[in-house]
Amino acid sequence: MRPFTYERATSAEAAARAAALTPGARFIAGGTNLIDLMKLEIETPAHLIDVSRLPMAAIEPTAVGGLRIGAAASNSAVAADATVRARYPVLSEAIVAGGSPQLRNKASVAGNLLQRTRCPYFYDTTKPCNKRRPGAGCAALEGLNRNAAIFGASRACIATHTSDMAVALVALDARVEALSPSGQPRSFPVSELHYLPGDTPHLETELIPGELITAVVLPPPPAGGQTYRKVRDRASYAGGLASVAVAGGQVALGMVAHKPWRASAAEGALAAGASPAEAIARELEGASPLGRNDFKVPLVARLTAAAIDDANGRG
């Protein structure tokens, strides 16, 4: 790791202000992804602002019948929360499909959302990667890209977002609450947090420098059953090949794009009375697999149809 200075934030406002003022500053909460990347010098912050002990870990009901989850809440705490398990089971299921119990105990909600890709070429610093060095090229594009995106990728980047939790949040129409360095709060859908890669895959999120995620807010759950299904090469403690979150008629896909992929075309078809298989087929008309990851198209088709059936059975 490069040397860095460290401070423990005293308030969210102070943290955001300090982050904007200090060159190379980054927030750290659980740190399970940031420290991983700092050890490889893929991340090289000059200053860390520890927000893990700010009073941002509460999980509490909102006035409109939803749930507000503090950004510093651990993944485990969210998955175990009684309200989450009763009303948003897809979120609990998605969280426990990710990482390991140890990682989930440490990782925060905001950190989970902001985790960076697990593309092996992003991690191998001897290879060109447009995320690590804009303009360097993408080693994955012609490489061993079995786990690459099938939606929304570009020539500059075919990496996927690998969060499980985020897929459920997108399916649930969750919103991010954030605080700008000037102290301005704002709120926007989780589905708009992550960018598609385009020509600038190093620009990954909607957040401006110094902006701090303070919470994730869930609206009341949609009518209908919920489920999360993930397929991976190992039974546990492994990134996915594809995943799907279903909440009533709302469907999001994981590990298929640079962001959690809201399957809007499938949702539209479902709403119009299509069968689950027909609906996901509609979504997959927009898929652009690269060869080695062609299997993701039928995998997503089958997995999603099965998950929608499951969810309907639970509804």
Binding site: G31, D36, S100, K106
Partner: peptide, 15 residues
């Protein structure tokens, strides 16, 4: 009381 990976956390953050 909670199990975590001690390799992925900074000692200074555990004051």
């Amino acid at each position: 009381g909670a199990r975590i990976n001690s390799c992925l956390t900074l000692a200074v953050s555990h004051d």
